[in-house]
Each structure stands twice: as C-alpha cells, then as structure tokens.
Design a protein around this nucleic acid. Sequence first.
DNA 1: AATGCAGCTTACGTTGACGTAAACGTTAGA
DNA 2: TCTAACGTTTACGTCAACGTAAGCTGCATT
Lengths: 134, 134
Amino acid sequence: MEKAHSDIGTEYSISQLSKEFDITTRSIRHYEDIGLLSPARRGQTRIYSQADRTRLRLILRGKRLGLSLEDSREIIDMYEPGKTNIDQLKKLIDAIQVQRGKLNQQLNDISKLLKDLNQAEADCIDALKTNGRQ
Amino acid sequence: MEKAHSDIGTEYSISQLSKEFDITTRSIRHYEDIGLLSPARRGQTRIYSQADRTRLRLILRGKRLGLSLEDSREIIDMYEPGKTNIDQLKKLIDAIQVQRGKLNQQLNDISKLLKDLNQAEADCIDALKTNGRQ
DNA sequence: AATGCAGCTTACGTTGACGTAAACGTTAGA
DNA sequence: TCTAACGTTTACGTCAACGTAAGCTGCATT
C-alpha cells in the first residue's frame, strides 16, 4: 500500500525558508555548519524537507527563549528517541526535568515582568492624566 | 518625623552580591561599565545599596529571559518614570506594548516547549517500559 | 614583617552567532 | 548572448558579554 500523505515530498529552497522565517540564508547555513541541520542536496544546492523545516522552527523558537544553539541542539535531540539504550533514556528524562525547571523559572520571570510592565504602564497613564489637567 | 524603615541603609559588597546571585564580580563590574549599575563608593570600594541590588536582580531576570543588556536597560528604565515629558510617556507606553508582545510570544513558545517535553518524556518512559519487559 | 584576602584598574583574549565580501557556478528570460 | 536572480564555498570581520591575567592597593591576621 502506498501512503497518500500530505507533506511528504514537500521541498523548500534556502531562500524560501529564509523568507518564511525572516532570517538570512547565512544563518541557515550556519546552523548547518554546526550540525543543527543537514539538508539533502541536488548537486550543490540544498534541498530542505518538511523535517528540516521543523527543526529550523524549533531552533528559532529556542532562540526566542534565549537558548544557545547548543541548548537547542540538546532539546531537539530529545524529540528523536532513536536511543534504545536504557541509560540514555534515563539521562534524557533527567535532562527533560532540567529543561522543565528552567522553563518554569522563565514562566515565573515572565509573569513578574508582565506585572511590572502593567504597573509601569499604569503609572505612565496616571502621569499623563495629571499632566494633562494642568 | 524619622522613618523607621527596614531596608534603608543596607549595604552590600561586590563579593556578597556575586555570591548571592552566583555570578562573577567581573560581570557586576561590567554592568557598571556599560552604565547599568552605579554604586556608591567608599574610597575606591563599591558599596551597593538595596536599589542597586534590585537593579541587578532585574538585569539577571532579563538575562534568563534572553534579553540583551541593552534590552534590560530599556525595561529597567521604564520603572523609573522621572520623565515628566508627555511625549516620552507616550513613547514609554508604546515600548511597554512592544515588550508585552514579546513576552506573550515567549509564553506561547514556552507552553509549546513544555508540551513537547511532556511528550518526549512520555515517549521515554514508554520506551523504558518496553525495553524493561524484554 | 610577611602572608593572605578582598578590592581596584587596565587591557588584551575568547566565545557564540552570525555579517560581509570575494569569487565562482547554474538556469531562466530579454 | 548576456544579465539577473539564485545558488555555492572560503574566509576574514564584528559585536556582545564577559574571561583572564597583570599589577596595584589596603587591611587584618599570624
């Protein structure tokens, strides 16, 4: 049976991806340089698959969260448990705990920051009203 | 009337702060170099006030959120509306909107990442059980 | 008196994450 | 045919955020 599948076979050029995610082609090539991406080739030209595109999305999400590319590599590798080794799995679970800890810390930080911003905004608006009355 | 206040007068040395926040003294001096901190001096020696300590906390929170030191500077400056100018206040409010946008994006990213991690962990545990049975 | 912290300044070095320029190959369209 | 748009490699440059080392002050304890 042949699978009639949606995404399979979808291809992207490097400039397509760079436009879609609003980054330079240099960045994309850089991610390949350090082994975060490894697209197929047609001749010299890079051909990105759906999976490559997903990895790139994860990398950029990591960046938005302030992760280094190395951090992102670890996290991304977690999603592919081609690891049958039990010890590795246990290590993975530990790593996941650590990441979850960091993320919860971030959530905490963000909620505090949002509160602060709200307060700052309220102060501003207040100041505006007061000044406006004069 | 004299205020009988809790924190006022509390002082910190640079090494105290470096231990409390688990960073190097070099970092703290660096934040001063770029004008993020400006502690008092007793002779040559830096004396950090409660307010300085708070600023440092904000800086580090920003770092955890992946902000650059310049970003942090902007945000921290928002909390001190010594700005009577109406235009500046309006600019501030705009800036706050922008920051809020970023933070909401981050919240979104984090919740996705947490979901992913949960899934990855579940997969790991699954794999462990399966392997364990053999 | 000497040793050892804690602090200081000055200044060059390093790392990560790309920017930027040069020099080149392929393909489509005027 | 040639030029424009896209792709490639190689390699040096840059910027932020410190690291690191040298060489200097106190101050206190042994």
